[in-house]
């Protein structure tokens, strides 16, 4: 796992358990604050993270019950990838 992490990439794995999504929200919050996003943007990032995590928790039917949140920090943008090993939602 360690070898796959690039400089300025943070990877968080959380169990799909009620309220644990708040660790991902906090992660998104601290990274976006440190990058000097404004309050409105930070709130939008927090809300996006919250909703995508809850979505994965509720609908993925993932067998390992884990969500992986990758954050890629660039000079003027922040990218998040939220991955689960659940079913294909396009074909749901």
């Amino acid at each position: 796992m360690g070898n796959s992490v690039l400089k300025n990439q943070v990877c968080l794995t959380i169990p799909m358990r009620r309220v644990v999504e708040l660790t991902a929200v906090q992660l998104a919050s601290i990274i976006s604050e440190s990058m000097s996003f404004n309050d409105e943007q930070i709130e939008a990032i927090q809300l996006g993270m919250l909703e995508f995590c809850i979505n994965a928790f509720e609908h993925s039917r993932s067998s390992d019950q884990k969500a992986v949140i990758e954050s890629v920090i660039r000079t003027n943008e922040l990218e998040f990838r939220i991955t689960d090993k659940g079913i294909d939602i396009i074909r749901m």
């Binding site: 300025n8 990274i31 604050e33 440190s34 990058m35 000097s36």
Partner: peptide, 8 residues
């Protein structure tokens, strides 16, 4: 990342 700080 850059930590925000201030000194008064």
């Amino acid at each position: 990342m850059a930590n925000k700080f201030d000194i008064q």
